[in-house]
Write a protein that binds this DNA or RNA. Sequence first.
RNA 1: GGCGACAUCGCCAAGUGGUAAGGCAGAGGUCUGCAAAAUCUCCAUCCCCAGUUCGAAUCUGGGUGUCGCCUCCA
Length: 463
Amino acid sequence: MMKIYNTLNRKKEEFVPIEANKVKMYACGPTVYNYFHIGNARPFVFFDVVRRYFEFRGMEVVYVQNITDIDDKIINKAIEDKSTFQQIAKKYISAFVEDTAKLGIRQPDYQPKASDVIGEIIKLIKQLEKKGYAYEVDGDVYFSVEMFKDYGKLSGKKIDDQKAGARVEANINKRHPADFTLWKKAKAGEPVWKSPWGEGRPGWHSECVVLSQKYLGSETFDIHGGGVDLVFPHHENENAQAEVLSHKPLANYWMHNGFINIEGEKMSKSLDNFFTARDILKEHDAETIRFFFLSKHYRSPIDFNREIMQESETAVKNFYTALKLIKYDASRAKKEYSESLLSKKEEFITAMDDDFNTAKALSVMFDLVKIIKNPKEELEEREITADLLVELGRVLGFFSDLEGKLSNDLGDFSEKLLKIIINLRNQAKIDKNWALSDMIRVELLKEGIQLLDTKDGTKWEIK
RNA sequence: GGCGACAUCGCCAAGUGGUAAGGCAGAGGUCUGCAAAAUCUCCAUCCCCAGUUCGAAUCUGGGUGUCGCCUCCA
């Protein structure tokens, strides 16, 4: 039985999809005004794992992720860069696609943009207006939160509690301070679309309603995900719009990942501790980043720092060390698991079934690593254990380039040269010319080739 | 002011009633010219206090501390 923590009820619940063996999931994607940062990357990676896991469990998954390409931040960036909002959006959409691919994140089934569905958003707002949940003031259209008696049920907020001490913007046009914008009247120089309320653009909270329902094909779908900060107001506001019209929640399960801190502090531009995924990818392997995310439960906050990345890198290396040790060849995978391995697989499934306990799942992988490395085990058992390690690892998004990572291929000519160098070094060793032999080893290491003096002679591997 | 989360070895982190997984780091052994790699072994009673229970890291109450949301934000 799979359990998922549902923000809506603030507890773990059994996951029952609307249609048997089919999961319809939607996760909020990026606003394309910049390269996305490490904090954005967490939900992208996590929901990628969620999707992979459902598939591993034999379910058909439809995964939709939107791209917000209409937004104040994009407009501001365009002004700053003396560009147009279309150009900015285009640039960062392609960067987004590129970077997520580098992170080993599979493309969602659909990745629609807000600008694709302006007509449908207008239709949605018109329906809300017709039912009396939306009102227009001078070209702006607002959603009236007081009209929807369940407003606040997702985030657990009562709108009237928000007044005292809260930082609520003063907007004399709003009937209630918590009312949110559905349609924004255009200001000079902004992108505009024609609407019944004049020229303007949609507010942020409507696009997800339209896109999710459209591409998932139903008023209610199974899972809606995003960062915790989206619970309020974004998801609350999405749900309010949908529920007012359909009298059903937008999604049955709402999943929210925790934040990333940078060396114990909140990431922010003013603290100058703002890291884009693109920059981090220059220093760390995608799998190191993935391990870092998955080493802690997705709902917990996680701290990003140099040490933790180093630890993650070493840990991931361990997987490959084990596979290299037995010269693992994925093409020979048999997956004929022994009983004890099947129980390990079961352990992995139990962990993941329990609200995606990836940290526990990783520990099962290390149990397997231990078996693979154990020279006392039968080689065949070690190989089959490696099959399982790879199978489970792939569920978490590891081992996407297994061949490349395991290969020790320099090309014929280079290998011949290397052999000559090793022979020369061995002669130096025989002469006890340690200075020379150590120098050769150090120089080769600088080029990424690690020499290993073993009982059976000198071996080498690409680092 | 309102709402919520969290507190487990030096660090990271599982564990939600039955006697503390795993990773990193560290110590020691084997191997070795040295190094690396590999391998074996060792390494915590769970923020504080009170309570429930045969039994609690796990449940309840009260502290203390850290953090998040309430404003654009993953």
